[in-house]
């Protein structure tokens, strides 16, 4: 304290300056790290809120359809129906919280790694029948909220059924090389030149909805032809071809109005009076009909902004409505 009277004004000023700098630096870092939302008035979401968000994301990501063998009365999320592809038959695994057969013992980091990089908790590679090439674009918060919801589901002690794949497509050891060729690791960047609605639509279409997995043609190794993103895929879902979603007038959705697209996503009714069938009926039932109106409009805004690409596939809204 000696001599403090003489140093206090200057020292206090320095202290205030340093404090102000520190607070300013903290605020800047906090804003950059996302904690800015909290400082700006939001708060840490409760577990119940995270689970509720996770349920919405679960629907938007279409998890139920592949991981539940609904047609054969399978238990919810305990393993899916056979997915027939040119590479063989995939059987989607048990994603209930069962600690042995499901994902109950997976850490948050392991769950993020699975969706971001296509790697299982045991370190082995996933096959891209699980669309991690799209889910990689999700942000960490959404991935963890999705996990929070999955952990609330009923655990089912049901072992996974091994895939039945043709060589060499069943060799997991090849997947890191495949990923080098085809996996663009996310998350998805926001496009600052586009509106918030467009960016939301892009996120719903490319990341959560993984629309490109069916609607984009694939090459010999099963990788997406990114030059023809959403331009339609003769192989489609393995059963039916998936039509061109770009706004090409003659072969895509160019003649569909915004109201046409929105109504289709809501209930599956096409502008020619036909009603959706096949796997897309399941997508409408479990996913797009469950979205908010704002999210459906965001999808429409994004789809209509795509560059029109010409497809040789049948057009969704023409021809006989029924056969």
């Amino acid at each position: 304290m000696t001599g403090g009277a003489g140093r206090t004004p200057l020292g206090l000023g320095r202290w205030r300056a340093v404090s102000a700098l520190a607070v300013s630096l903290f605020l800047s870092l906090a804003m950059m790290s996302g904690a800015g939302k909290l400082l700006a008035g939001s708060r840490v979401p409760s577990q119940a809120e995270r689970v509720a968000r996770g349920q919405y994301l679960f629907d938007a990501a279409g998890c139920f359809g592949c991981h539940t063998d609904e047609a054969r009365g399978g238990q919810r999320l305990a393993g899916g129906r056979a997915l027939t592809t040119p590479f063989g038959i995939f059987y989607p695994p048990n994603i209930t919280p069962d600690p042995i057969y499901g994902i109950g013992s997976w850490s948050d980091a392991a769950f993020i790694r699975a969706l971001r990089h296509g790697v299982r908790a045991d370190g082995s590679s996933l096959f891209p029948a699980f669309p991690y090439t799209s889910y990689t674009l999700m942000d960490d918060g959404d991935i963890l909220d999705l996990k929070a919801y999955l952990m609330t589901q009923k655990p089912v002690a049901q072992p996974n059924r091994p895939h039945e794949l043709k060589d060499p497509f069943g060799w997991r050891v090849l997947m890191p090389a495949w990923n080098l060729m085809y996996l663009d690791v996310g998350p998805l960047d926001t496009n600052p030149h586009q509106s918030a609605q467009w960016n939301r639509g892009q996120y719903l279409v490319r990341a959560l909805g993984h629309c490109g997995e069916c609607h984009t043609p694939r090459d010999w190794a099963g990788g997406l032809d990114k030059r023809r993103m959403l331009a339609g895929n003769p192989g489609g879902d393995g059963v039916d071809a998936s039509p061109n979603l770009t706004p090409d007038i003659e072969t895509g959705l160019g003649r569909w109005s915004e109201a046409d697209l929105s109504l289709f996503l809501e209930m599956g009714l096409k502008p020619n009076g036909d009603v959706v069938g096949g796997t897309m009926a399941e997508v409408v039932r479990n996913t797009t009909s469950q979205l908010t109106l704002a999210d459906r409009k965001a999808i429409v805004a994004y789809l209509r902004s795509l560059p029109p690409l010409i497809s040789t596939l049948p057009i969704a809204s023409r021809g006989n409505a029924h056969r």
């Binding site: 071809a241 039509p243 599956g268 409408v284």
Partner: peptide, 20 residues
Amino acid sequence: IVVVVRSCSACHESFRQGKP
């Protein structure tokens, strides 16, 4: 109307081939 459309869709999902 939603019930009507869903009835059509449910049948198409299970029993119609080649038209998503």
